[in-house]
Write a protein that binds this DNA or RNA. Structure first.
Lengths: 332, 332
DNA sequence: TTGAAAGCGATACCAG
DNA sequence: CTGGTATCGCTTTCAA
């Protein structure tokens, strides 16, 4: 009826009629039934985020930003956890929501085009509308910071090994995407080293899987080298924390005997002691932008995809000049 | 039609008819539309968790456990973030899901009975079906551990101040519940001290709000006392971390000059250096049990509410005998 | 402008 | 056992 029109602000309803309807709504305490609306084909003011796990700070930071933006736009944010068995009924939220935000979807979640809502934005995942970060630039920032401090023996702990890469034929493989990020960071590191005229020994690049434990393992391999690095750039804060702890367990002092730089700027980076110098990704902002994009899309606009988000070096206490630095080497 | 019956395993459908339907389903690739089902009054295999924030480890630990249990039972877990403005349309998920799990719902979310699904279980929140933890016992565990180590000057950093307490008339006030937890821990601490024949100076009990920053403030107040404690029992890991850091910033060594015990056993407790001795709450298990309860309820059973979950002392490296301990005082 | 009528895709009641 | 029919609450189309 006309009621539908006034609620959805559609056709031009006469002023007094609209008023009358509004009063009736007020009087009866009426609330639209979103489920019925969805069934009838209407879209609701909600955004679904699909994410496999919620106990990784990376995801929750993005979600927090997304929630904030959604709140401002008066959208509801609903997150659906993808069960590992892959039997989640994605269709429900797909039908209900105006758009979907994919955060680090696992490779199990084979996203069949048809299962997703009309509008999809992904963060650290697959898809045509991806939000990315300047990984290359971030890596250069970190490496050059270490270089400037006077380090020459700089190790690198990377993410997934690119040798594991799958054929590029799979268009929707999120693992693939992870590797791209990892590769970009590795490239930034190598370029910075090369620009400084430094050679990178083969075993100065180790790999982890972004977990703290893997960072410990990789750092151990680095520190046991005959010529161990005096600084390590780690492609993830959790791994960086692991590296710091391994060094400390080995009796080394951070940053005096080993400098460590991370990547991400997760909450643990501030909370750790010493505070972790790291490359900041604007995770919350990415979440916000993702939601803004989705809402614009849902409302019929055609927003442009933003450029890769810039990264920023956050200097804390885990980096210092090398002990063997020539006197007078720059402190900053 | 009969189709509905076979899908829902309802009435006794003849074997061959059922077979025929199943084949048709297979052939057409039919999938039930959960939205339509919900509109028609049917319930879906999903559980909604309502939680205001997702970037607190407490909540995500519980959710992780819940997700695991849900996966096993082939239910989908959906988490709805309550916008701070309180305008979230809770009704959608309420209509869709078979049950709801409330995790630390903020006080803004005034839970009107009618808005929630038939079955509700809450963790660290309001409601009639609450999952609780043995806070009193946990506090005794922690305090007695410190006592056994030989400490006599033991400070306590508590959660919200109980003076702020609202009149008990409000049945659904989650803040109220928080304070109950805090009170139980305080009571455990006091009882243990009393049992050891120790008096608790008035200013040995400080309050925080569970944030790291508040833990720093409280610890600072404690350490600046004329007679500072040699050990602090902190009612939350984040605050405990703050306390440790403040002590370290003051040049004190943990645990040599100050012992710290936390509460919760969040991931940061293992990740911190020194590792934080803490009272473990089985957060993930609580999430699992909550979902199992909800599913049982949804399937018509009448499961009993479990007893308060037991807590456990996890000894790591943040506790040691006091420096001034009489020689030969028990190390354990 | 307004509103009557036809779905959307299930469930549930009730005759065959 | 089966399956026709009303219903859930909304959007949409199309007359009036």
């Amino acid at each position: 009826m006309t009621v539908s029109n006034v609620i959805n602000g559609k056709a031009v309803v006469r002023q007094d009629t609209r008023q009358r309807v509004l009063e009736a709504i007020e009087a009866t305490g009426y609330r639209v039934n979103a489920v019925a609306r969805a069934l009838a084909g209407g879209r609701n003011r909600m955004i679904t985020v699909f994410s496999p796990q919620l106990n990784r700070p990376y995801a929750t930071e993005v979600i927090q930003g997304a929630a904030q933006a959604a709140g401002k736009l008066r959208y509801d944010l609903i997150v659906m956890m993808l069960s590992e068995e892959g039997f989640s009924d994605v269709s429900v939220m797909t039908r209900l929501a105006a758009g979907a935000l994919l955060i680090q979807p696992s490779r199990e979640g084979r996203w069949q085009r048809t299962e997703l809502p009309a509008h999809v934005v992904s963060v650290d995942g697959p898809g045509e509308r991806r939000l990315t970060v300047d990984n290359y630039g971030g890596a250069r920032l970190a490496t050059e910071h270490l270089l400037r401090l006077g380090h020459t023996r700089i190790g690198f702990i990377s993410g997934l090994e690119s040798e594991d890469r799958r054929p590029a034929s799979r268009p929707f493989d999120p693992e693939q995407h992870d590797r791209d990020d990892a590769d970009e960071r590795l490239r930034g590191y190598r370029d910075s080293m090369a620009a400084a005229g430094l050679k990178v020994p083969r075993n100065y690049v180790q790999h982890g899987d972004y977990s703290k434990a893997s960072g410990e393992g990789a750092a151990l391999r680095l520190l046991r080298l005959a010529q161990p690095p005096s600084a390590i750039f780690v492609s993830g804060d959790a791994m960086a924390l692991g590296a710091m702890h391994v060094a400390q367990d080995l009796g080394m002092r951070v940053p005096d005997e080993l400098s460590v730089v991370g990547f991400d700027d997760l909450p643990i980076a501030v909370a750790s002691r010493p505070g972790l110098t790291t490359v900041r990704q604007p995770l919350a902002q990415i979440g916000e932008v993702a939601v803004q994009l989705l809402v614009a899309l849902a409302e019929g606009q055609a927003p442009a995809l933003p450029a890769p988000f810039p990264t920023e070096l956050i200097e804390r206490e885990s980096t210092a000049p090398p002990r063997d630095a020539p006197p007078g080497s720059p402190r900053h």
